[in-house]
Design a protein around this nucleic acid. Structure first.
Lengths: 162, 162
DNA sequence: TATATTTGCGTAGTCAACTACATAAATAAT
DNA sequence: ATTATTTATGTAGTTGACTACGCAAATATA
């Protein structure tokens, strides 16, 4: 087993390790869908689950729900629409709004999709069970960063110790 | 406090949350350097620390040390070289190898850089102290994903439950 | 010794997030 | 009623990771 230099950096390398892990999982997820011959992409599950729970939703609402910027949402939805998984319907009162909703194709495939996703969930749950408190620590981190971002928190300490 | 839809997805949204956090920290880090008027970028600290510890290193070695692909390393080093923080010296025996090492500019600025990084570290250590086992859980996750990737682990479970 | 393979580095093109800007509809203000 | 602001969506360009490919030097094999 080779030692990992990033690990030796401890808390310093936190962001880089998060990125490395998420990149690896997302890339692996893409390969997974490809190997199954499914025409969906990593992260689309966020939209699928969101629309399953909340029904029709506008682009801006979805961006807000998921914590993405709206241009990211637009790109994602555009692709899902092209693949036939969602459709957009203009609001009758408000000409700006586009209500995005799942199509027939989605409702057909979602049970199978969920079976796959459950495979991933069960692995993650075994590795990081509730008693480890991992997800709560992640939430704490996210909450703190939302309240006052990494830059400001770091600069505070930097200037204090001057 | 608004509830976060991703949190409601539990272990399903793990990769997306890792990505969201790292993106936020990296972006915030970039703003931080800009606000200080420093001409360095997020993630360069990995190279700085690596070269401080190991001295001169080739591109391929560094990619291996840090777990990046070599083209990523090439891009990073190219920029650091342009900014004057590293220099590349050709190996005398082996004409392919480029030994990358820190410049005078680096040794001048690194003490100040470390003071800043320590600010970030102290925040992260307070939030995720050793007794939470957070870094160990992260390492466990990385180790498992390296042994057998996310796709294969998920597909195993998917096919087993058929 | 000639040829094939491996190794180190580099380039080109892809991808999903971002910021900044643009546009058009709805709403508020004068 | 006109004008200004806000809101919803869309477009363009940047970023840092990736894969795939190319090339030249070193090494192994025939």
């Amino acid at each position: 087993m080779k030692e990992d230099f990033m690990h030796s950096l401890g808390h310093l390398a936190l962001a880089a390790r998060f990125k490395r892990i998420s990149d690896a999982m997302i890339h692996s997820g893409r390969q997974m869908y490809k190997s199954l011959g499914w025409d969906i992409e990593p992260n689309w599950y966020l939209v699928f689950c969101l629309l399953e729970e909340k029904g029709a939703r506008t682009v801006t609402q979805m961006a807000d729900d998921l914590g993405y910027t709206h241009p990211s949402m637009v790109n994602m939805i555009k692709k899902m629409q092209l693949a036939g998984y969602v459709e957009a319907v203009s609001d009758e009162q408000d000409g700006r709004k586009q209500w995005v909703k799942l199509t027939e194709k989605s409702t057909q495939h979602l049970p199978e999709f969920h079976r796959l996703w459950n495979g991933g969930i069960s692995w993650a749950e075994e590795l990081l069970p509730p008693e480890t408190g991992f997800l709560e620590l992640l939430s704490k981190l996210e909450t703190q960063l939302k309240e006052r971002d990494f830059k400001d928190r770091t600069l505070d300490r930097f200037h204090d110790e001057k």
